[in-house]
Design a protein around this nucleic acid. Structure first.
Length: 442
RNA sequence: GCGGUCGUGGCGAAGUUGGUUAACGCAUCGGAUUGUGGCUCCGACACUCGCGGGUUCGAGCCCCGUCGGUCGCCCCA
């Protein structure tokens, strides 16, 4: 039998759920605009080597990519993250010629990873991200974090923690890695299976093992900070200083290393500390990359950015009981009686819509009761009632739902009456009631 | 990729040791109220109990497989 379920780890978005997405996307566009970031859209798939560069040992690029051969025998990969494609585009389009350096970009894009789904982790997930490309400057590091925080805080999130660390430049990181491997060479034998694997793939990850963190070898392990150059330390200090001056509380965590291999210097992660968040607690995370632009054949420019998972953001919002669903309301619901009136209702709805009123009516000539229930569900502000009498007299009954006031007007006066009620409502509600009471008939 | 758990109408949710017509609540539709919602009462509303196969006289209940959700690990947004 055919499988007509959504593929694992994907979802349909509609109804009230999609409204939350629209709210978030709108906010993202507003805030990036204020911060001076331009949108960039890169393809959903790239040549595989864009993502799968040598010396990248992360799981994201090694095990989780959707890679396929197209009909022209090309190896292509659905983007697992936002950064690589943007750096490729930055170099390919010579965007570094931008006189107003740094180049500040943002994106909203789906990302694809073959993983076991969980709450807050999908095979197709969506990221809002930014990248700033140009000469390295600690103010940029601070700005990037600040922008990300402003998005999540504007949405109302409070249970947040900013973790930050520095990995130093590429050379010091490499020599640290070598030192770690040397240190763990003996003791790794009695570590957990995951650590054995990390030893080979990403030794830095051994340090935040949850099982072996009490091990003496772990405690006596060399510290990354001992391998940092003076310049790296100074750079990190100034980033911290700027953040502090902008009242952003951060927690320096020297175990924070991040998953993608291209990071150098500043790395950060903003996590939700809410208990209902589950194990996928990172809302957004990113860092600086000194060598990526050069690796793609561009000039020696540094970059920094973050990726923010929209699905995860929604989980965090739910954990803090923040509801982004706005009550939708419409202007008019036309209640009609009989087939002739229903057809007239269609024409009237059309007319009102063309005049800018959000209008609904009933296509199926259901009972009055059902139609009023619909009007209520749609949060209509005014009901227009059209029955046999109104048809005959060329009139309509308008009922203002909140005050229950009702007037009978000639067909030609409907628009005028609606404007009167609905416009005044926006200006000063309290006077509206007083005035309309006088107009109540019956 | 590893381990646990779950999958019954649009939604929530009963379903006992396998036994004829698969509770109940919400929502929806109709009526009481032949032209006015939010209360009340009456009535209506399931081709597939995720899907496929097996055991059985008989399966939502048992067995196998499969798809999906969810939780933990790994990893990460």
């Amino acid at each position: 039998m055919a499988n007509y379920q959504v593929p694992r780890g994907t979802q349909d978005l509609f109804g009230s759920e999609i409204r939350k997405w629209q709210r978030i996307e709108l906010l993202v566009r507003q805030l990036t605009d204020v911060f001076g970031y331009q949108e960039i859209r890169t393809p959903e798939f790239e040549h595989t080597e864009v993502f799968n560069r040598e010396n990248d040992s992360s799981d994201v690029v090694n095990k989780e990519m959707y890679t396929f051969i197209d009909k022209g025998e090309r190896s292509l990969t659905l983007k697992p993250e936002g950064t690589a494609g943007i750096i490729r585009a930055f170099v390919e389009n010579k965007m570094y010629a931008n006189p107003d350096s740094p180049t500040k970009l943002f994106y909203l894009s789906p990302c694809f990873r073959y993983e076991r789904p969980q709450k807050g982790r999908m095979r197709i997930h969506h990221q809002f991200g930014i990248e700033v490309l140009g000469d390295k400057n600690p103010m940029i590091d601070a700005e990037v974090i600040s922008l990300g925080l402003s998005v999540v805080q504007s949405l109302g999130l409070k249970d947040l923690k900013v973790l930050i660390n520095t990995l130093g430049d590429k050379d010091s990181r490499e020599s640290y890695k070598t030192a770690l491997k040397e240190h763990f060479k003996e003791p790794i034998g009695h570590f957990c299976a995951d650590c054995q694997r990390r030893y080979q793939q990403n030794p830095l990850r051994i340090l935040d093992c949850k099982i072996d963190h009490e091990d003496p070898a772990m405690i006596s392990a060399p510290k990354l900070r001992d391998y940092l150059t003076d310049d790296s330390k100074a750079y990190f200090e100034s980033v911290l200083k700027i953040l502090k001056a902008s009242d952003i509380d951060v927690e320096v965590n020297d175990k924070l290393v991040r998953g993608l291999d291209y990071y150098t210097h500043t790395v950060f992660e903003v996590v939700s500390v809410n208990a209902d968040m589950g194990s996928q607690s990172t809302v957004f995370g990113g860092g600086r990359y000194d060598d990526l632009v050069k690796d793609f054949g561009g000039p020696e420019l540094s970059g920094i950015g973050f990726g923010m998972g929209i699905e995860r953001l929604l989980v965090a919002l739910e954990a803090e009981k923040i509801d982004l669903t706005e009550e939708e309301s419409s202007d008019v619901y036309i209640v009609s009686m009989g087939q002739e009136a229903t057809e007239y209702a269609y024409q009237l709805a059309n007319f009102l819509r063309l005049n800018g009123f959000v209008t609904d009516f009933d296509y199926y000539a259901r009972s009055f009761k059902a139609q009023f229930k619909s009007a209520e569900r749609k949060k209509a502000k005014v009901a227009i009632i059209i029955g046999e009498d109104e048809m005959k007299n060329g009139q309509a009954v308008l009922k203002k739902i909140d005050t229950q006031t009702q007037v009978t007007v000639a067909e030609g006066e409907i628009l005028h009456q609606l404007s009167h009620w609905l416009d005044e409502e926006h200006i000063h509600d309290e006077f509206c009631d007083v005035e309309t009471q006088g107009e109540t008939h019956e």
